[in-house]
C-alpha cells in the first residue's frame, strides 16, 4: 500500500508546488508515510469499540432469551 500511495501523494505535492502561496498541509508527514500509523491507530480504536458494542449487544440478546425462559417456567 505504501508503494502505491507514496508516489501518488508525491504527485499531489508536486501539483500544489505549482501555486505561489499554498496553505500548509501535512504533505511531508504524508509523504514520509507515517499518516498510516495514525489511520491504523484510529482503526484499532474503532475496531475495539465496535467489537465491545457487538459483545454487549449479544449479552443483551442472551438476557432476553433467559427472561423468556424464566417467564415460561414461572407461568
Amino acid at each position: 500500500m505504501k508503494r502505491i500511495f507514496t508516489p501518488a501523494f508525491l504527485l499531489l505535492t508536486a501539483q500544489s508546488f505549482a501555486q505561489d502561496i499554498k496553505p500548509e498541509m501535512a504533505d511531508s508527514f504524508r509523504s514520509s508515510g507515517k499518516i498510516y500509523v495514525v489511520v491504523c491507530v484510529a482503526a484499532i480504536v474503532l475496531t475495539g469499540l465496535l467489537v465491545y458494542l457487538i459483545t454487549i449487544d449479544r449479552k443483551v440478546s442472551k438476557l432476553e432469551r433467559d427472561l423468556k425462559s424464566l417467564d415460561k417456567t414461572s407461568n
Binding site: 500511495f5 499531489l12 500544489s16 499554498k22 496553505p23 500548509e24 498541509m25 501535512a26 499518516i35 495514525v38 489511520v39 484510529a42 482503526a43 474503532l46
Partner: peptide
C-alpha cells in the same frame, strides 16, 4: 476513518488539515 484521513481535501488557510 480510513478515507477521512487519507482522502484528498481542499487546502485552506487557517483550517489546514
Amino acid at each position: 476513518v480510513i478515507e477521512g484521513f487519507l482522502g484528498a481535501v481542499p487546502a485552506r488557510d487557517i483550517l489546514n488539515e
